[in-house]
Amino acid sequence: MSNFFPMPSGDRWFLLTIIIFSIISFLPWTQKIHVAGMALFGWLMAALMIFSPAIALIRLIRHRVSNRGEQK
C-alpha cells in the first residue's frame, strides 16, 4: 500500500513538467544567452508566469467538460 494519498496522474505529470521547466530555467546557460536585451532566464521566467496558470486552467476546464459529458 502506498504511503501517499492518491493524486490524479494528469496532476502528477503537470507538476513534474513545471518543476523540470523551472530547474532548466535556473541552469547557468540561461543566464549567459541574451535575447532582446535580457537574459534568456528572464524570458523563461516570464513564460512560466503565463503558461503555468494557463495550462492548469485549460486542464481544469477540459476536466469539467468531460465530467459533464459523463453525467449526461
Partner: peptide, 12 residues
C-alpha cells in the same frame, strides 16, 4: 521575475 514567477507558479 524570478521572485514573481515563483508567486505565480505557487498558484497551480
Amino acid at each position: 521575475l524570478a521572485l514573481f514567477a515563483g508567486a505565480v507558479l505557487g498558484f497551480p
